[in-house]
């Protein structure tokens, strides 16, 4: 009988399902439930109604929040159930040396540090103890100059997880970006294809950015509403990458803030917000 409810009424029920695991099981029930639950606008509503809990910090191990923080009990039970030593990643067994690079959607992106690997990244879920070793970045996808810079001069390949946001949480996406004194490029890995693909590239000139010739120009990556932002060193701009349109663009700092370290965070109602770590909320909104 309840199976005969209309789509709208079913979504009103699904939005009240308390845990993502229950929602996932409901989506496996039948094709129409799956269609309704994986609908991006539904997932956006669901995520804004069931925001993730702050549990702690992942560094070399897990540092959980403690009383009187309201999530302390949840954090303790997570810490008991999960394995943040990452020993379940058999790829790491020999060296046990690894560096967490990023955390989102309950997953951790690890860099493996061992003699055998030149470059190795592993995405793992410390709760289910499942993991995925990413294939090496396909340097042939890069523009010629940048490929040479990475291969010959050893320019670093940096990586971050792409938050699932409106997408179905299950697929894993990772961005990798590389830069030289002339240009920058971004590649995207998706667990759906199992491959790296070309995202976009640009020269600093094309973006009107003057960057110093040495070292990494992009700092303090932030993510909000489908876009990554990096502070461009020695400038009052962010480099912005839109994951959906695969485009780079720039964004100026709010006036008088160029000397500060600022972050961009999600502020609800689809507004990205500039956050000043000094504790002040800036009034500027970005969309």
């Amino acid at each position: 009988m309840l199976a005969a409810l209309t789509d709208d009424l079913l979504q009103e029920i699904f939005i009240r399902i308390a845990t993502p695991a229950d929602l996932d099981r409901a989506s496996a029930t039948c094709a129409s439930f799956r269609r309704l639950i994986t609908d991006p606008s539904f997932l956006r509503r669901y995520h804004s109604r069931h925001p993730p809990l702050l549990i702690g910090l992942v560094s070399l191990g897990l540092y959980i929040v403690e009383e009187p923080h309201p999530n302390a009990a949840a954090a303790r039970s997570l810490a008991g159930a999960a394995d943040f030593s990452f020993r379940f990643v058999s790829h790491l067994e020999r060296s046990h040396r690894h560096l967490p690079l990023d955390v989102c959607d309950g997953r951790v992106l690890l860099q493996c540090i061992c003699d055998r690997c030149q470059w190795c990244r592993v995405v793992c879920d410390p709760l289910s103890r499942r993991y995925l070793v990413l294939p090496p970045v396909d340097l042939d996808l890069l523009p010629d100059g940048l490929r040479v810079s990475v291969k010959v001069r050893g320019s670093p390949i940096e990586t971050l997880l792409v938050p699932s946001g409106d997408c179905e949480k299950k697929s894993i996406r990772v961005i990798a970006w590389m830069q030289s004194d002339i240009e920058a490029a971004l590649l995207l890995y998706s667990s759906v294809t199992g491959r790296w693909s070309f995202g976009t590239s640009t020269t600093w000139d094309a973006l009107g950015l003057k960057v110093p010739p040495e070292g990494s120009q992009l700092m303090f990556p932030c993510y909000a509403y489908g876009c990554f932002y990096w502070k461009v060193k020695s400038s009052n701009k962010w480099l912005k990458f839109n994951v959906n349109t695969m485009e780079f663009s720039t964004l100026g700092y709010p006036p008088d803030q160029d000397a500060r370290n600022v972050l961009i965070v999600e502020a609800g109602q689809d507004c990205a917000r500039i956050y000043l770590p000094s504790g002040l909320m800036d009034s500027a909104f970005l969309t």
């Binding site: 009988m1 309840l2 009240r16 029930t29």
Partner: peptide, 21 residues
């Protein structure tokens, strides 16, 4: 709606199917 959501809680897809008829 909350009542039905609670009926789904902790059930396998097959159990959800049976619960919802």
């Amino acid at each position: 709606a909350k009542k039905v959501a609670d009926m789904i809680k902790g059930k396998s897809p097959m159990e959800i199917r049976r619960t919802l008829g």
